[in-house]
Design a protein around this nucleic acid. Structure first.
Lengths: 180, 180, 180, 180
DNA sequence: AATGAATGAGGTTTCATTCAT
DNA sequence: AATGAATGAAACCTCATTCAT
């Protein structure tokens, strides 16, 4: 059992059972070790959770963002959305996302990460919009506003349940709304 | 001490200290009563929390939504946003909102309310957009999409920190983007 | 079960089994209650121990010191010694004494009490010597020094094991040494 | 890391932090080794503590006691007291003393050593007094009683805080009290 | 000679809850 | 309507110890 194994299992518990079910007992049981063993790897529950934030942060940082701007507008938005969707639903990151969502109101650390996640979406959205506007794919208008609108709507779609077709339709409609 | 007093204090704890700090001990202490006394009013903690959801739901239901459509477009959006802001920040409702936000990933009941809150924003937003489009204040286009964009962006703005001016600017820009 | 019952039992454990055996589990078991019950009466183990110091201090303060100075010198010293012996061996106070002895090197509070106990013996010893010297029962000499000598020797005798006769002989010899 | 290093550090912990802080974890940490390593040198904590008693005993045994009886009475007492003071305060022995003081009520072994320490002081004190009396430096009287008085008062002075001058004055007064 | 990893037992404390009064 | 006293379960954590390497 390595530190990573522990963090992975901790993340899974948070995602699947909720933050308040992340107890040393529960965690140990799932890992098939005794409670005391966890204290060999982490000084305290607090430190474990802190490590969990680091772990998530690091994984998030390793996600690149490359968009092929030779595609047509709708496909560009579509790829962007897919990229985010992967982040939100990937086994690797959904745990951290779940942690952050549950703790953001109460834990400074979670709040920061939640905000920086927003910021990431927003800046990627802005970059895409700027490109489309500058290349006259989208009507000449405030690309920052377009960025916010696309990022916001996408974020909410990603954190609530929507059908695949519904998402497709949204992207198509969004493209049409602003396409030249 | 009435049931309402208890629910109010419970809400305040959730908002100010987080859901996990809502313990019988903490609640009793804040109310200056002994723990056992709370069991005269509520069968169990579970029932108390259930009552808390009802309490919030009821208060939410009593919030009407009346917009004076004789105002100009920007003012209409502004009033709409103000209306939501009041809901999100009012002492009466912020507690329930906090509860729902913290528990939505984990508690069926919270998830439902969270969704219905979204729906409410969305339907009000849709109604406003439909009106503006139908009265040719806004360009003829898919009013449902406009509804989603406005509701989404507003929701995220309301649940993260933004300056008053920033919000003003957003509404103004949004209006310009779609105004005829 | 009252606070006093708990303190008495805690004291007994310290005296009979040693300070490190004063655990919440052990204490609860001896009192035939469950661990959690102790927390109704004391906020924490630390508070319990603090209360124990108070309890001992109070009992110590209630011990008067009255010597009949019409007796002969040896009897006066004998009574004085008996008075102290009672303090050191009484069921009521031996517990506190044991606590203080075991913790004085490590716990500020115990150290203070230990010192004030010394001081008490010393001042009573001084008073007795002063009386005997001033009444010419003892040779004219530094009564403070006599006080220290008698108090010191008595203290050590009381905290280590000595036969009754040995103590008697000591007092007798001490009297002869200084009697006119 | 040798057995001695371990014993020295263990003693330092007992003196500086108290017996209950002598844990394998704490000890290992201070020695910059891992807990398991200590078990290469000592079978168990119990054996380690037993070795600690031996270690202290041995060091104590190596302290000779030689007094130059050609000095004057006050100086003889002064040297005797100094000798003891060195034992009580020396880095080498204060640890063991601390151990014994903290454990004497609870641990047979500590109790024995504590008693034999007393005995040592007592027999040295007796020897000095006998010499002074036999050489007519002190008035002809029960030298064993003088021995007890000097040893007792000194012992208490050494285990509680006193100024250097205060100690000096005590020795001077004691000398005067019994000098011919 | 030392250590990484694990453990069983037991420590203090908090939790929601009960029940007689 | 409220509370004093108690409780079982479970929380986090530390202890001395083991054992393969």
């Amino acid at each position: 059992m390595t530190r990573e194994d522990i963090l992975d299992e901790a993340g899974a518990i948070i995602r699947d059972e909720g933050y308040e079910m992340l107890t040393i007992s529960n965690l140990a049981e799932k890992l098939n070790v005794k409670k005391a063993s966890l204290y060999y790897h982490f000084e305290s529950k607090e430190m474990l959770i802190s490590a969990l934030y680091d772990y998530f942060n690091e994984k998030l940082a390793h996600r690149g963002f490359r968009i092929d701007f030779s595609l047509d507008s709708e496909e560009i938005l579509s790829k962007t959305y897919e990229h985010w969707r992967e982040i939100f639903l990937s086994d690797e990151l959904s745990c951290g996302l779940s942690l952050v969502e549950q703790r953001k109101e109460v834990d400074e650390r979670a709040y920061e990460i939640y905000n920086s996640l927003h910021l990431m979406l927003r800046s990627q959205s802005d970059a895409v919009m700027e490109n489309l506007v500058s290349r006259n794919k989208f009507k000449k208008q405030d690309s920052a506003l377009l960025g916010e609108l696309f990022a916001s709507a996408s974020f909410l779609r990603l954190t609530t349940e929507h059908s695949y077709e519904d998402d497709k339709a949204f992207i198509s409609a969004f493209t049409n709304l602003f396409a030249t």
